[in-house]
């Protein structure tokens, strides 16, 4: 299984994502410059956190017009796994690959802390190694993680099991019903505000993020073999 991490001007978690793949999955991973419109060699795309284009205009709004995003949309369409973390989630929303939009945190401040999440659906390619309803701890670090969608969209997300994670206990940003991560209808595109790549060893404060990457690998290689 080959991984790509697109790099936009202003991405700053690209290396961290690549490191997680290398160290936790021991699979090949390439950083792909945003001008590159070809992601054919890859099976999974990790859109990293950061401040693509300085988050100017709106978070993720400018990155979505990069050539690499056309390739991401194509990859999603072909059933490859696409994971957007933090700014990567915001880009997926702006690009319309996931429904809804992101607002400024309700308390108006940037917030960096380790939060407790509940795994709402463990039948996704990204969550297979978690228990359903399990509480896990992952770090967040964002100023705009206040997820919004209208009631109709929310109902659809709930009915189709597209809500992957919710904040358990404190909601750190005011997101609708405490949503921390959602998928598309097909389940192969996940966007989440918390950073699983920052939670892969105990010394980081929590290693609960490692299973998210392992789940992806198990799902993919279970379907396609270890290639």
């Amino acid at each position: 299984m080959r991984f790509a991490v697109p790099v936009f001007p202003g991405s700053n978690c690209d290396e961290d994502c690549a490191k997680a793949v290398r160290e936790i999955l021991d699979r090949p991973v390439d950083l792909v410059w945003y001008k590159n419109g070809n992601l054919d060699p890859y099976d999974a795309i990790l859109l990293p956190g950061g401040f693509s284009y300085g988050d100017y205009l709106r978070t993720g709004a400018l990155a979505r017009f990069s050539p690499v995003m056309d390739a991401v949309a194509e990859a999603a369409d072909r059933g490859k796994l696409v994971l957007g973390i933090c700014n990567g989630f915001q880009v997926l929303l702006e690009a319309g690959l996931l429904p809804g939009a992101m607002r400024v945190n309700d308390h108006l401040k940037f917030r960096c802390s380790i939060q407790t999440l509940r795994v709402e659906n463990n039948r996704l390619p990204f969550t297979g190694l978690y228990e359903e309803g399990e509480e896990i701890r992952l770090p967040i670090a964002h100023g705009e993680g206040n997820y919004y969608c209208d009631d109709g969209t929310l109902k659809g997300l709930e009915e189709r099991g597209q809500i992957a994670f919710r904040y358990a206990g404190e909601n750190p940003n005011g997101s609708v019903t405490g949503i921390a991560g959602i998928t598309n209808r097909e389940g192969n595109v996940l966007g989440l505000m918390p950073h699983p790549e920052r939670a892969i060893y105990g010394w980081m404060g929590t290693d609960d993020g490692a299973r998210l990457f392992r789940s992806m690998l198990r799902y993919w290689e279970g379907m396609h073999g270890a290639a």
């Binding site: 709106r58 709004a61 400018l62 929303l93 702006e94 809804g100 939009a101 607002r103 919004y148």
Partner: peptide, 8 residues
């Protein structure tokens, strides 16, 4: 296309 996000 760009300047406003029609969702919000």
């Amino acid at each position: 296309e760009l300047l406003a996000n029609p969702v919000i």
